[in-house]
Design a protein around this nucleic acid. Structure first.
Lengths: 154, 154
DNA sequence: ATTTTCCCTAGCGATTGACTAGAGAATACG
DNA sequence: CGTATTCTCTAGTCAATCGCTAGGGAAAAT
């Protein structure tokens, strides 16, 4: 499970991805339009700015805008910044690896092996889905073709 | 991220899946062999028993054993019982659906759409991987053939 | 009856999640 | 210049959850 923080961040960025490029949007407006708590959203956007996803400007006509093109920002990047590693367990993570205290032989741990597969599946989707992709798919009424070819078997 | 609880549960069940069918194993022995906190593990096994995964017996020669065959118990089932829904957000869950407070139009929510895809990918793996599968794969030195054919693209 | 083992309820300390408050600094504008 | 606007930053709060531990109760075997 991801946190509200990640959800709010994703929603905000996705909204900004649909603004005119270069145009600034107020935190207050994002919060209002997306029904998110304003002060909390401020913190989140600040964090995203520090990580290079957003550019901001103060004072009148200020606000936030994307610091990159929407097709350069992936869901995976955003989630990792706001919520940490994707993997179900730290021992199965690439970006946030940490070994289990209880694991005697990690090379053989069957649980870890399966969780690595889960991580890979999640990363395959989230690291290849950009804000642009999601925005486009959101607009399509009923997407017939799937950009990422199914999820393999069942 | 999953909790320790789910990890402990998976490890314990996986160990029981490798015992002689019908044979009881003590909580104390599982805890020792897997290096898990004994009292906490008790709670977890109790929960798994109440959910029908384990059979237990008290007194001398007692202990726990699987209540089903290892190929009838999936990772998905276990995780859902111990940690709740797989989906990144409740609004993207099938088994534990709950709508977002902030979502105005759920049918169009692009975040939800992507998270649904992630959920599906996770479920495809976890609901098709049984204790028997994991135990078998664990024994293989270096599995050349993947039971679930890759994770689709990159 | 006694030992073994699971069964069950309680509780607890630390962390984290999900925020809110409020002052400070930059920017625009009249 | 001054004032309104808007982001920036640090704190703090409150409740829930995680990750356990404690300890007695009940069933089974001997």
């Amino acid at each position: 499970m991801l946190t509200q923080k990640a959800k709010y961040g994703l929603k905000a960025l996705l909204m900004l991805a649909q603004q005119e490029p270069g145009e600034f949007t107020l935190v207050a407006e994002i919060a209002a339009r997306q029904k998110l708590p304003r002060k909390y959203l401020e913190l989140i956007l600040l964090e995203l700015r520090k990580q290079g996803f957003l550019h901001s400007q103060r004072g009148k006509n200020g606000g936030f805008r994307l610091a990159k093109r929407p097709d350069e920002i992936t869901f995976g990047q955003i989630i990792r910044v706001l919520d940490g590693p994707l993997a179900p367990f730290p021992c199965a993570s690439l970006t946030g690896y940490r070994k289990c205290e209880d694991c005697t032989d990690e090379q053989v741990c069957a649980v870890r092996k399966q969780m690595r597969r889960v991580r890979d599946a999640m990363a395959a989707i989230l690291d290849s889905t950009t804000l642009a992709d999601a925005a486009a798919e959101g607009l399509a009424q009923e997407g017939p073709a799937d950009p990422v070819p199914a999820i393999a078997l069942a």
